[in-house]
Write a protein that binds this DNA or RNA. Structure first.
Length: 385
RNA sequence: UGUUCUUGGUUUGACA
């Protein structure tokens, strides 16, 4: 079963859910009966490719076979729903569980608290974290981190710091997530020096500084047009034995493109390849986007094909970037072809897609009717121009 | 062997 489960996980991570489901079906025939772990793995995988319906069917199938979902399975279900914006359904399930007097694990609470945070209902997240205590479930480091992140994103830096003090007081040691979230909050409030100080003083002391800490600082520097300073941090991190990753490079590449140094940006991209770091969809899209802005559509397309060749999943942002570039170069027609393609491949257009296409179509009088058509389509989906 | 928390990519406008 272990081997099968590991294999299932691999398939899910490669987004091969069809195969994963087949394997799951056939396991019993091969005399290897799937367990809760097998089901949870695939259910989680289905959510990650947004197949809610299938995930639910598998969940009920699991129940039907007499399996009792454990806390990990419950958390996976709740989180899956939340990650697709179905917070109300997640909450309903949660309430049902409470009513049945099921003893909920801290990770189930955490999943729901995170869901509330993500959809902008921070106050409900706070309420829930207070509720869990009363219900006999103590918050753990993840609970605290979830709230620290919330506060940091909302700019409530004092609350973030207060929470770190509080967890220490309760004997829960803050980890790198806790501090990285705080650092990120400080950076977003333009307090980069303070963020750096905390990294050096608090994190360094407990060996918590990691690549994410540096990436966070470097991103802040790049955003404030100090990409050079960000780049210099590379040396410092290497001295500490922390190695730049794909995120580091992507951050810098974007920084230098934005500061009108495309040559160095491209050089960094190649340096990344040279170090054996595989660019992901975000790294590719960044370069594609900047090439488009520089009217280097052909180079952008080269990257796009490269990205496909490497098996990166083309997401809505990748399509949007390229379509934007095409519109900008008055190649609206090709943009519309891509639009069709993305719809066919099951990549759903978002608000940005419609805005950019309509913007592109309006630039030429002859396309004005098509613009109108898209506008109606957009409104049907509940987007606003 | 499975779940929950942190960093990087896309649209338009207003003001200056």
């Amino acid at each position: 079963v272990y081997v099968h489960n590991v294999f299932l996980r691999c398939l899910c991570r490669a987004r091969k859910l069809g195969e994963a489901m087949q394997i799951l079906e056939r396991m019993a025939e091969n005399g290897c009966h799937p367990d809760v772990v097998s089901f949870t793995t695939v259910i989680d995988g289905l959510f990650k490719v947004e197949r809610v319906q299938d995930a639910f069917e598998l969940w009920y199938k699991m129940l039907g076979l007499g399996f009792l979902p454990d806390s990990v399975a419950c958390a996976a279900l709740i989180h899956g729903l939340c990650s697709l914006g179905k917070i109300d359904e997640a909450y309903e399930l949660f309430v049902k569980m409470i009513k049945k007097k099921v003893v909920l694990d801290v990770s189930v609470y955490n999943a729901l608290i995170g869901g509330f945070c993500k959809c902008g209902k921070g106050s409900r997240a706070e309420i829930l974290s207070a509720f869990m205590e009363r219900n006999g479930c103590s918050p753990d480091v993840v609970t605290y981190n979830t709230l620290i992140n919330l506060y940091s994103k909302e700019g409530r830096l004092n609350d973030s710091q207060r929470l770190i003090m509080k967890m220490v007081g309760k004997g829960i040691a803050p980890n790198s997530y806790s501090y990285n979230e705080l650092i990120d909050g400080l950076c977003r409030a333009n307090k980069i020096d303070k963020a750096y100080a905390i990294m050096c003083q608090k994190m360094e002391a407990s060996g918590l500084t990691d690549v994410v800490s540096y990436n966070t600082l470097m991103n802040a520097l790049c955003k404030s047009r100090n990409s050079g300073k960000a780049y210099n941090l590379c040396h410092e991190m290497l001295q500490k034995g922390i190695y730049p990753d794909t995120v580091t490079y992507t951050t810098l590449v974007n920084g230098f493109f934005r500061e009108n140094d495309p040559e160095f940006a491209v050089e960094l991209f190649h340096e990344m390849l040279g170090r054996g770091l595989a660019p992901d969809a975000i790294a590719y899209t960044s370069v594609i986007d900047h090439f488009c802005r520089l009217d280097k559509i052909d180079e952008a397309f080269d990257m796009f094909y490269d990205m496909i060749r490497k098996g990166c999943t083309l997401d809505v942002i990748a399509y949007n970037s390229l379509m934007y570039g095409l519109c900008k170069s008055f190649r609206v027609h090709e943009a519309l072809e891509l639009f069709e393609e993305m719809t066919k491949t099951g990549c759903n257009p978002d608000e940005h897609t419609y805005n950019l296409l309509i913007g592109g179509l309006c630039r030429e009088r002859r396309f004005i009717n098509m613009a109108r058509e898209l506008w109606y389509q957009m409104m049907e989906k509940g987007y606003v121009l």
